[in-house]
């Protein structure tokens, strides 16, 4: 393998990994606060992409306006989803709320088939983002450069919110013990809504970036990325924001390098993602950056 090919593979891996990282953050945030695996995350991701698509095609809004509108809409949608599907079950056994999440996921997929139609749609990608740039013999499109930058910027902002602000302190309190936080006059509902808002916002942003990079929409487009990013979050240590980013990049690198070094096994690329998950869980059950937590009784 020549050096330039290797560089091309590295660029491909980082650009895919950053997209995984972006979506994995949303999973990990919700889990960190509520200990809930939000199975509908992938479908919120799909919804964000569709809303942006319709803003651009039906209302002919410029792409960045469409992006903002879609993100805000999806964030509120996420808050609404939590209120309808998860809040009434917060004090029920954990399994009930998980089943509710799965139900929400199926509901959103079926609604999307009914409303948006089952046929795939092509996304009008803005020219600025789809331009090809070259570094020597390595080439990539602008969007592949933008996504990692945004991922790291969002990571920094989120770490600041969680660790330095009052809301962040409340989030950490709820994460440690909901009852105790409530006794300390933390408005748990507000914190949870805020978390879902942020999580859905990230999902929408990820979905739109995804649809700009792979310009094709269909109602089930969130299923596989949802699963992969869940894996990324678990590998990194679910609940840890930096861990999610690390897991996302790791997954992207493994997937690309599998094909790069073992081209004959390129059909088994998804399998490698799952093998990586199993290996990490066997060696370090809490994930790479996860903290061991004493089981609350």
């Amino acid at each position: 393998m020549t050096l330039s090919l290797l560089f091309q593979h590295i660029v491909n891996a980082l650009s895919l990994g950053s997209l995984y990282a972006l979506i994995a953050i949303g999973y990990t945030m919700v889990y960190g606060i509520l200990r809930l695996i939000n199975f509908a995350h992938g479908d919120v991701f799909m919804l964000g992409a569709y809303v942006a698509f319709y803003m651009m095609t039906l209302l002919s809004l410029p792409w960045w306006v469409a992006l903002l509108v879609a993100i805000v809409f999806t964030a509120f949608f996420g808050i609404g989803l939590e209120r309808v599907a998860y809040r009434p079950l917060r004090d029920s056994p954990r399994i009930s709320i998980m089943i509710s999440a799965i139900a929400a996921s199926f509901l959103l997929e079926s609604l999307a088939v009914l409303i948006f139609g089952g046929r795939p749609k092509g996304v009008p990608v803005p020219d600025v983002l789809s331009r090809v740039i070259h570094f020597g013999s390595v080439s990539m499109i602008v969007i592949s450069l933008i996504i990692p930058l945004f991922t790291f910027a969002l990571l920094a902002v989120l770490l600041w919110i969680v660790n330095k602000t009052k809301t962040g302190m409340a989030m950490r309190a709820v994460s440690t013990d909901i009852e105790a936080a409530r006794l300390m006059a933390v408005d748990v509902n507000k914190v949870v809504s805020f978390t879902f808002g942020i999580g859905s916002l990230l999902a929408a942003f990820g979905g739109i970036m995804w649809s700009f990079k792979y310009p094709q929409l269909n109602p089930l487009m969130g299923v596989m990325p949802g699963l992969k990013c869940f894996i990324a979050a678990v590998i990194g240590g679910i609940g840890s924001i930096s861990g999610a980013v690390l897991g996302g990049f790791l997954l992207g690198i493994i997937e690309i390098m599998t094909v790069a070094f073992l081209p004959t096994l390129s059909g088994y690329r998804d399998a490698f993602a799952f093998i990586l998950l199993i290996v990490v869980l066997l060696v370090k059950p809490t994930g790479l950056l996860g903290k061991r937590q004493a089981e609350k009784v």
Partner: peptide, 16 residues
């Protein structure tokens, strides 16, 4: 070179 139904990223195969 192979890929799976539903894949969206083919950059690795194409670099090959």
């Amino acid at each position: 070179l192979n890929y799976n139904t539903g894949d969206t990223d083919f950059s690795a195969q194409l670099t090959e």
